[in-house]
Design a protein around this nucleic acid. Structure first.
Lengths: 153, 153
DNA sequence: ATAAACTAGATGCATATGCATGTATCTAGT
DNA sequence: ACTAGATACATGCATATGCATCTAGTTTAT
């Protein structure tokens, strides 16, 4: 009837995943907010667009790269456009589509954010994980993703 | 000015943590919802209370064990009480306090949920993590938590 | 004994998220 | 050319979350 019970390691990992996510993401959000900066999701958008430079990204492509679902991304972008961080132009060969590009002001904001964001990656991750756990952590996390995703990281 | 850049491993771990959390937690929520059951947070509350049996837990103690912040827990409990899963009695020696206990109906729901929840722990975690990554994953995740927390898992 | 500081928990409000649906455009089959 | 179905994106709505604040009760210091 009920499935066999998960073992201790499995339980520990599930609990740890939840705690770690809450704690680490929480630290990022708190510090960004304290610095008067937008949250990590905005950073991800800015960075994804900055990497594309002037070529830009279609909205559905950005969606695949980000953790947003489609309606949510749509709204976030609206606000980012309002704040002049991102431009949204009609796509050339698809009347439905929008091409997204980062603006200079968006680039500037991302750089500002990186000072905090990058610093947190150092202090909350790089300095914390013991070298002997590094590979296992990285590969173990990859194991947890569907194969389509894991290969790209 | 800007801090030194995090290395590749650090970046990979940060990205993976986010992806894994979204994917794995998402699977749990989806499957629970599909089965017409409440979400993982409710499960955590029920399980924490069931382990205490008739002794019960104060609300602030439950808060420490759970991922809720205080106002949010307060509201969740209200709904769980309304649905007869949990009782909230005045604490004996503290006029401000409430003692929480799980009801029979709460126990029953938790058991039902476990059929899905435990099964997902097996299929999404136990079957996925390669044995050689297990220790590194577990300990690496522990490394990421503040010391006060990590010892108890 | 009493005021100040603290703790437990509740509530209001602004924002975020998830999901269903809507609209416009595109593609394919006939 | 025309219709059926798919795709890109937007919007509405119900719920969840985070944060500030409120109330009631408790502890501490004088």
């Amino acid at each position: 009837m009920t499935p066999p019970n998960p073992n201790e390691d499995t339980t520990a990992i599930w609990v740890l995943l939840n705690l770690v996510n809450r704690h680490v993401v929480g630290r990022f959000e708190t510090e960004l907010k304290r610095a008067g900066l937008p949250n990590t999701r905005w950073y991800d958008v800015l960075w994804a667009l900055e990497r594309q430079n002037c070529e830009g990204l279609r909205q559905f492509q950005l969606e695949e790269l980000s953790l947003f679902d489609q309606p949510n991304l749509s709204r976030i972008l609206k606000r980012m456009v309002e704040q002049g961080l991102v431009t949204q132009c009609a796509a050339e060969n698809d009347g439905r589509g929008r091409v997204l590009r980062i603006t200079d002001s968006g680039r500037e904001l991302r750089t500002q954010m990186w000072a905090v964001y990058g610093g947190l990656m150092l202090s909350e991750i790089e300095e914390k994980v013991a070298p002997e756990h590094l590979e296992g952590l990285k590969n173990g996390l990859r194991d947890l993703l569907p194969e389509e995703w894991a290969t790209s990281i």
